[in-house]
Nucleic acid binder design. Structure first.
Length: 239
DNA sequence: CCAGACGTTGTT
DNA sequence: GTCTGG
DNA sequence: CCAGACGTTGTT
DNA sequence: GTCTGG
């Protein structure tokens, strides 16, 4: 599964990698430990211009029909096996596919009942990558505002992840970005929902304190962009 | 997903 | 053990 | 017909 | 909004 990830790319780097050229959200810095319920940048097609754009959304998808935001606490992931038919995801899968920029995802390997080791999994190339994501717009009647949320699709682990965990996020190769984002097409890109090529990935154990890093709240994003506090997460990365 | 709290009364 | 906040 | 769920992971 | 269970 994917309950945490690393995004060391700032807005500029993301715009370059995902070829986003148009107007976009305010600047933001990296997040070294992205947690559910925080606002993160995603890439999607602008509904009017059909150009790629970066939008900030909250992690934990709330279907447009939800009566309350509660369901968003358990929809940080969507299973590839059921995403086309599940009531909470099927409409978004057809019409609101997006890419979630990341540089690594974190998995805690279970050693025994009370011990677990955190690992980071990234591309050997060190390039950023995109999770296959879905987004929704939910009308919060209480707050009288629209809330944008997203989820990350999961699939079976590849050979790199299998020793660590029984699920992994769907990561899309660059060549498939366009097809995934093209929500106008009547062709549903189901074939893209598969484990990433293991030969191109690497995993390494990270410091236990990764779980204590709290530098990705919306309030801190602006501060981070000027004074980033970078944990040594990538120091040992065999990239 | 993890980390951290897990309580009450009264006062602002 | 279980819930909440991030 | 209405009421209630709609989700994932991991743990028991 | 739509499906399932009763």
């Amino acid at each position: 599964m994917c309950g945490r990830y690393v995004r060391r790319s700032d807005k500029q780097r993301i715009a370059e990698h995902f070829h986003v050229y148009g107007p976009s959200v305010p600047d933001f810095g990296p997040s070294w430990n992205v947690a559910p319920q925080t606002f993160q940048p995603i890439v999607r097609l602008n509904r009017d211009t059909r150009e790629r754009e970066i939008v900030m959304m909250r992690w934990g998808l709330i279907p447009y029909w939800a009566k309350g935001p509660q369901i968003g606490l358990s929809t940080i992931n969507a299973k590839a096996e059921t995403v086309a038919t599940a009531p909470s995801f099927r409409e978004a899968f057809k019409r609101r596919r997006c890419l979630v920029p990341a540089d690594a995802f974190l998995e805690w390997q279970k050693i025994d009942a009370k011990t677990k080791k955190p690992f980071a999994i990234a591309l050997k190339s060190g390039e950023p990558y995109g999770f296959a994501g879905l987004s929704e717009r939910w009308h919060d009647k209480a707050a009288g505002a629209e809330l944008l949320t997203f989820t990350v699709i999961t699939t079976d682990p590849n050979a790199v992840v299998e020793p660590l965990h029984n699920r992994m996020p769907v990561i899309l190769p660059e060549r498939d970005y366009s097809r995934w984002l093209d929500v106008d097409s009547s062709q549903i890109p189901m074939d893209l929902l598969r484990p990433y090529e293991a030969d191109q990935m690497t995993a390494w154990e990270v410091d236990k304190r990764i779980g204590n890093v709290r530098n990705d709240s919306p309030e801190l994003l602006e501060e981070q962009s000027t004074t980033p506090k970078e944990p040594s997460l990538f120091d040992d990365a065999p990239l």
